[in-house]
Each structure stands twice: as structure tokens, then as C-alpha cells.
């Protein structure tokens, strides 16, 4: 999942560009009130006749923990080398300290992962020697750490996918955990992918997202609309290029929201290049010349 594959079916004269849900729903940066904070409300009442002043009872609300996870890849793709060290940054977007498990997949392998334990932004020799296939990283709310997936030598282009999972639990957003904690919009698990490419790849493919909540903020809350933007940059002429992107779990596709190079496209299979097919946005770009860029957007609502 999450890789950009180029099918060089030269005999068939086809090249397909496919992307699964390349990025998970990562909660945007926001200053959340810390878990355990108590919010107290008191109203004051006055009357002029007869002269009266009175405070209401104090009502208290304690902020529970939101458990979320986020990860971003340093780069969407990078060239194959002898070492193939692939950098990611994991982040705790929640409002409580938590521990996070990191795992990576590169082809059939589960490579070791080095963690920037001291938080200096560099992976030093000590941290490299301590690399393991399933490191656990403690992060304060808003905290982040760089990790380096030590893939080693691989002969062919492949996708390197890293997944970060909150130790307190993961699953559907809104699910209650122990101690009144609640799983946040990310599902408390997030994935990012870097593709190791050779220089003959026909295209590079990037995906970004923007969140707009009903209250006008960028909070990733139920009802918030995520706009996904897929940008395919073609390095050489490609015939019959196709893009496929799954609607992420925990979200619902906004009907009629697909655009291709800023022009709206309809969901059914009809005259235009786009269709919604069982939870997957599919766009047939056709023959695309070298140096061309195609931009697809669509929207989903957080459930």
C-alpha cells in the first residue's frame, strides 16, 4: 500500500501510475489543551433591583487524552543507493504523553529502524547500533523524533513503508480506550512511504492534504472535510497513465468532489476521465507528455 508503481508494460504500450492511500490522515498541528487539565465554568449573576450579586456553582470538565499518531517521509521518493537509508519523522499529535511503536516494510523485509533518541535531529553511531525492527519511542504531546529505516542494498525499485502505532491502542477514530482516552482522527496509527527509484521511473507522485472543520478551524474532528491533492509529475512520455487512490478508512468520500487540473469531473463511469469505484478514486490521464504535471483533488469527510 501507499507506493507509486510504474508499470512499464512497453509491449502493451501502457504505463500506469497508481497510488493507494499514500498518506494516512495525520492530524494537523494544533495546540490542544493538555490531557488532565480541568476547565471550570462559573457565571456571575447580578440584578439591580433588588440589588443582587451571586456566583453560580462551579462546573468542572476534565480534558481527556486524545491518542493520535502521525508520520511523514523526508521525501516521496529517493534514488536507489548501496545503503538505502530512508528518513521519516514521527509525531505525537495528541494531547497526552504516549509510547509509539514503529515498524517498517521494504519489499519482503522488515528492516531495522534507528531512532534519534537524544532528539538532536541526527542519527549518530550509538543510535544506529541500537536500531531494532520494532523500536518503541516515548513522545510528549506535540513531540516528534526522526527515525531512519536501514533498508540496506536492494537491487530493484521498491516502496519503503513505515508505520507508527500508539501503544495505548489504535482503531476507529472516536473509540474509547482505558482512562477516558479517545482515539483521534488518525486512528492512532499512521503510515508514510518513500519509494526507492531508479532513474528510469516515468513519474513522481506526491499527495498532500488540507483539513477544514465545520467551525472554520483546521481541527481534524468528525465532520471536517479533508481535501487531498495528488500531483503527478511526468519525467518522460507515458501512455495511458492511470491514478488510483483509496478513500481512507474513517472518512466518507464527498460525492462529485474530484477535479482534474482544477476542472470538475463526475463520479460515474461516463465521458470524463474520473470515476469513483468501490471506495477508490480512479482517474485515467491517458497519454501524458514528458515534463507535464497533472493535479487531481478530491474530498472526504471525517466520520
Amino acid at each position: 500500500m501507499g507506493d507509486t508503481t510504474i508499470d512499464r508494460g512497453v509491449k502493451r504500450g501502457l504505463a500506469a501510475v497508481c497510488a493507494a492511500a499514500a498518506l494516512s490522515v495525520s492530524t494537523p498541528a494544533l495546540a490542544q489543551t493538555a490531557a488532565g487539565t480541568t476547565i471550570v465554568n462559573i457565571a456571575r449573576l447580578t440584578a439591580s433591583s433588588p440589588s443582587t450579586a451571586l456566583d453560580s456553582n462551579a462546573v468542572a470538565l476534565t480534558i481527556g487524552a486524545i491518542v493520535d499518531a502521525a508520520i511523514v517521509a523526508d521525501r516521496a521518493s529517493q534514488p536507489l543507493t548501496a545503503q538505502n537509508e530512508v528518513g521519516f519523522t514521527i509525531r505525537n499529535p495528541g494531547n497526552a504523553a504516549d509510547r509509539f511503536t514503529v515498524e517498517a516494510v521494504a519489499g519482503e523485509r522488515g528492516p531495522a529502524i534507528a531512532v534519534d533518541v537524544d532528539g538532536d535531529g541526527q542519527i549518530d553511531d550509538t543510535e544506529r547500533r541500537a536500531a531494532s525492527v520494532r523500536p518503541v519511542v516515548a513522545l510528549p504531546p506535540g513531540g516528534e523524533r526522526r527515525i531512519l529505516v536501514l533498508v540496506g542494498d536492494v537491487p530493484v525499485p521498491l516502496a519503503v513503508t513505515a508505520t507508527v502505532t500508539a501503544a495505548r491502542g489504535h482503531g476507529a477514530p472516536g473509540t474509547a480506550l482505558e482512562d477516558d482516552a479517545v482515539i483521534g482522527a488518525s486512528g492512532a496509527q499512521a503510515t508514510a512511504t518513500t519509494r526507492l527509484t531508479d532513474t528510469t521511473d516515468a513519474a513522481r507522485f506526491d499527495k498532500t492534504q488540507a483539513v477544514r472543520a465545520p467551525d472554520g478551524s483546521t481541527r481534524a474532528v468528525p465532520g471536517a472535510v479533508i481535501t487531498y491533492t495528488l500531483v503527478a509529475q511526468f519525467v518522460r512520455d507515458v501512455r495511458n497513465a492511470r491514478i488510483a487512490d483509496m478513500i481512507p478508512a474513517g472518512t466518507a468520500y464527498v460525492p462529485g468532489s474530484i477535479t482534474i487540473d482544477s476542472r470538475p469531473a463526475t463520479d460515474p463511469v461516463d465521458g470524463d476521465a474520473a470515476q469513483l469505484d468501490a471506495g477508490t478514486v480512479r482517474v485515467a490521464l491517458g497519454d501524458v507528455p514528458a515534463a507535464a504535471t497533472r493535479t487531481i483533488t478530491f474530498q472526504a469527510i471525517i466520520q
Binding site: T37, I39, A43, R44, L45, S49, P50
Partner: peptide, 20 residues
């Protein structure tokens, strides 16, 4: 048993809360 005139309710919005 008497009416109250000029009644005002003041509610400062608590920290950590955004009015909507």
C-alpha cells in the same frame, strides 16, 4: 415573591474553551 429587575448573567469563557 418579588420581581427582579436588571438581571445580568456574565460568563467569562474558561481557558481551553473556544466560543462558537
Amino acid at each position: 415573591t418579588q420581581p427582579l429587575a436588571g438581571v445580568v448573567f456574565d460568563n467569562p469563557v474558561p481557558a481551553g474553551v473556544a466560543y462558537r
